[in-house]
């Protein structure tokens, strides 16, 4: 989408562009990945789209491989009116898309460093493009850890990818769940309980974190205890969004517009605000 011309939009930025749904993949009991035709759409890991499903529009992170020119994926949890409409789409249906929006994960700046990726719940979705990027540029990074916490075993996303990444010798993948029954033979505990498994050079390490806000607060605290620099811990924030253009005012978090200054922000930039209630 030709969104910019010398930094200014030339096309009505409120207008969705129509894409075709290629496939709806059921990830868990309530979460679906909507795969749409790319049609020249380009994005960077960590960016999001506004998806329009006739009854409404919602911000959804892009969860596919940025190097894949054919398909763009969005992983959606069915919670409300619009997300239900999105999850009910079928192959061949049309969908409205505005984007990509937002500040991406700063992958280039972290080259040469060890990388710790920490995901909680649906927070794995905006991190998946980042992981694809790290793995296709594996030589540019030191050790890579992926720590992922889900609520229960049935909430685990992207099982195939997790298995594939786990099988690689050049990335350490740990998955934990908050609650499990006896059939689960993996880790049980919050995602922060995986952090002691991380063995990196803290002075040359970067972390990318996404999950519920409280999980990100606890996680960043543990990463700082590990010796990581707050300026190299990046988190992806979420707030109510209506326009994604920095105009509607909804997504403000202190001075930041999450839609354009975020969603990815360095922890050092917002550490204080994160500890304050109702910001």
């Amino acid at each position: 989408m030709m969104m910019h011309d010398n930094g200014k939009s030339v096309i009505n930025p409120y207008l969705p562009r129509i894409h075709k749904v290629k496939r709806i993949k059921r990830e868990t009991h309530d979460t679906f990945t909507i795969e749409i035709s790319a049609d020249g759409f380009k994005f960077m890991p960590g960016q999001f789209n506004m998806l329009y499903a006739f009854v409404g529009e919602v911000p959804i992170s892009i969860s596919s491989d940025p190097a894949d020119g054919n398909v763009i994926m969005h992983t959606v949890r069915r919670v409300g009116h619009t997300t239900s409409a999105l999850c009910s789409l079928k192959a061949g249906d049309s969908i409205g898309v505005r984007g990509p929006f937002g500040n991406p994960w700063p992958v280039r700046e972290q080259e040469g460093n060890d990388i710790v990726v920490v995901a909680g719940g649906l927070g794995l979705a905006p991190l998946r493009p980042l992981i694809y990027h790290l793995l296709s540029n594996r030589g540019r990074y030191g050790r890579i850890y992926l720590l992922y916490g889900a609520k229960t075993p049935r909430d685990i996303l992207y099982r195939n990818e997790l298995a594939r990444w786990r099988a690689r010798f050049d990335v350490d993948v740990y998955v934990t769940v908050d609650k499990a029954d006896e059939r689960w033979h993996g880790n049980v505990g919050v995602v922060t309980s995986l952090i002691p498994r991380v063995h990196v050079d803290p002075l040359h390490s970067s972390a990318f974190v996404c999950g519920p806000e409280v999980m990100m607060r606890f996680t960043t605290r543990e990463l700082i205890n590990l010796g990581l620099n707050a300026e190299r811990i990046f988190i992806s924030m979420e707030r109510n969004m209506k326009c994604a253009l920095g105009i509607c005012g909804h997504c403000q978090f202190g001075p930041e517009f999450i839609c354009k200054d975020g969603p990815v922000l360095s922890y050092s930039r917002i550490a204080r605000l994160l500890s304050i209630r109702e910001v």
């Binding site: 609520k151 908050d178 309980s193």
Partner: peptide, 17 residues
């Protein structure tokens, strides 16, 4: 203390996730 913190986070996450 670590396990207590984890339980607290677990309680909060169950609400949020």
């Amino acid at each position: 203390m670590k396990r207590l913190q984890a339980v607290r986070l677990q309680l909060l996450e169950i609400e949020e996730m």
